[in-house]
Amino acid sequence: MKNKQELHEAIAEKTEQMDDPNFTSGPPLNKKDGIAIVVIALICVIGLVWGFLI
């Protein structure tokens, strides 16, 4: 019972913090990451086509 109570209290505390509009968990993916994802995805698609054609 003590564990469950502690669990609920911890959840309530954390969710309160995380629902705060000013909450940040840390830096998200940035513009460079976005560009890298797109570029790598394009390379993969080209690579898939090339792999079939060779």
Partner: peptide, 29 residues
């Protein structure tokens, strides 16, 4: 040859999309 390109490029592009889900779990723990 086809197996290497299909596997590396195919799995990487699938992983790029799948791992977008990771952002949710990391952000909110």
């Amino acid at each position: 040859e086809e197996a290497v390109t299909n596997t590396f490029f195919g799995m990487t592009v699938a992983g790029l999309f799948l791992c977008l889900c990771v952002l949710i779990t990391t952000r909110y723990g």
